[in-house]
């Protein structure tokens, strides 16, 4: 797996100029945004960074397929399952790197702006963003492996659009039915507050382990069936 991680790091670095530009844009957003009394702008920037770095893994899958280099890769001393697992490890490391960078920058910006914020709440919000982005990646990785560079982008775009359509329609339906989503969510969050923290951590860990297991199993099945 070490060789694959080195390969993907090199491949990710191929786009370093684009990523520097994106990071620069994020920094400008960070500096120019009026934070007011809310951490919402910081949450967005953290999500933006995490997603950007997480997307690196999808780019490496595309590069692997370019000019049949995946066929050669599969003749090297790695198994198809190791190839898949490495994508998850690389994705986790990429997303985490983006998250750490963004949290440091956003926290620094808020400290400079003198915005009052509770450290515990802030960091748990940041972790929430990381987990949300990571969950999206668990869906996107098998899709990219399955549909490849040609169709992958279209499928991923379709999934994203479907997600927003379902989300938007759901909200409209709830509004029409007179269901107060925000109120209910707030109620749910309040209920969560009375659950011991360790139980929430365990529940989240179990959900994510199951998510990783299912996503990786699907990806492995796809790769097992692939003809190179």
């Amino acid at each position: 797996m070490k060789g694959l991680l080195i390969k993907d790091t090199h491949l990710a670095m191929f786009n370093k100029k684009i990523y520097i530009i994106f990071a620069f844009v994020a920094c400008i957003m960070l500096v120019s945004t009026d934070f007011g009394e809310s951490t919402a702008a910081s949450d967005f920037i953290i999500g933006y960074f995490c997603f950007l770095f997480g997307m690196l893994v999808l780019t490496t899958i595309t590069y692997d397929e370019f000019d049949h280099s995946i066929s050669f890769l599969m003749t090297m001393p790695i198994s198809r399952h190791t190839y898949v697992l490495e994508k998850y490890v690389f994705c986790f490391l990429g997303t985490l790197s983006g998250w750490i960078l963004a949290v440091v920058l956003a926290t620094g910006r808020m400290l400079v702006a003198g915005l009052p914020f509770a450290a515990g709440e802030w960091i748990s919000g940041c972790i929430g963003v990381l987990l949300a982005i990571f969950m999206i990646m668990l869906v996107l990785i098998p899709l990219q492996i399955k549909f490849g560079s040609d169709n992958g982008k279209g499928v991923i775009m379709g999934v994203m659009i479907a997600f927003f359509v379902v989300f938007g329609l759901g909200k409209k339906v709830c509004d029409w039915l007179g269901i107060d989503i925000e109120g209910n969510l707030q109620y749910l969050i309040n209920q969560l507050a009375i659950i011991p923290a360790w139980l929430i951590v365990v529940a989240v860990a179990v959900i994510y382990l199951a998510g990783i297991g299912i996503s990786a199993a699907v990806s492995m099945r796809i790769v097992d069936k692939k003809q190179y």
Binding site: H10, Y63, F72
Partner: peptide
């Protein structure tokens, strides 16, 4: 192996390829 199509990724250079091969073999 030499395949009629496909070798190390075209988005790598040989120097990078060397570090990958050294880790693989």
């Amino acid at each position: 192996v030499v395949l009629s199509e496909g070798t190390l990724s075209g988005y790598l250079n040989v120097k990078q390829g060397i570090s990958i091969l050294a880790s693989m073999y």
